[in-house]
């Protein structure tokens, strides 16, 4: 088996284990149990840290987008979603449109 395939197989098993542990530990708990509340806080904090890093300090192809364009995309999406109460899909589309326009304008 090639190295990349073996790594994929083992990683897939590790992912199942992580998910199974979570279900096993918390399956018998109520939603307001402190352990569940802590896990929810860690999950939400992880997600918001992911967004912050993806916008402010991204890697890969996104790093090629200038920071002002990334911020314009985020701001336009949030403005549409929160302030104008547009649906998720429309806000997502407006945010990406703003990102592309800002990138084009900055070139």
């Amino acid at each position: 088996m090639a190295e990349a395939d073996l790594a994929l197989l083992l990683a897939a098993l590790a992912m199942l284990l992580l998910r199974a542990l979570g279900l096993l530990v918390a399956g018998a708990l109520r939603p307001d149990h402190p352990l569940v509340a802590w896990a929810a806080a860690v999950s939400q904090a992880t997600l918001s840290a992911f967004v912050a890093l993806a916008v402010l300090a991204p890697g890969g192809a996104v790093a090629a987008i200038p920071l002002p364009a990334r911020l314009a995309g985020l701001a336009a999406g949030l403005l549409a979603g929160v302030a104008l109460r547009r649906g998720l899909l429309a806000s997502l589309g407006l945010g990406l449109l703003a990102l592309i326009l800002a990138r084009w304008a900055l070139q």
Binding site: A14, M15, A26, R30
Partner: peptide
């Protein structure tokens, strides 16, 4: 990539959020 053990360990740590997420979801 970069070897089986580093890739598997790195991927597991990078996705370790699955554990608290499954815990928050399970109830």
């Amino acid at each position: 990539g970069g070897g089986v053990a580093p890739a598997v360990l790195g991927a597991t740590v990078a996705n370790a959020r699955f554990l608290p997420m499954a815990m928050a979801l399970a109830p």
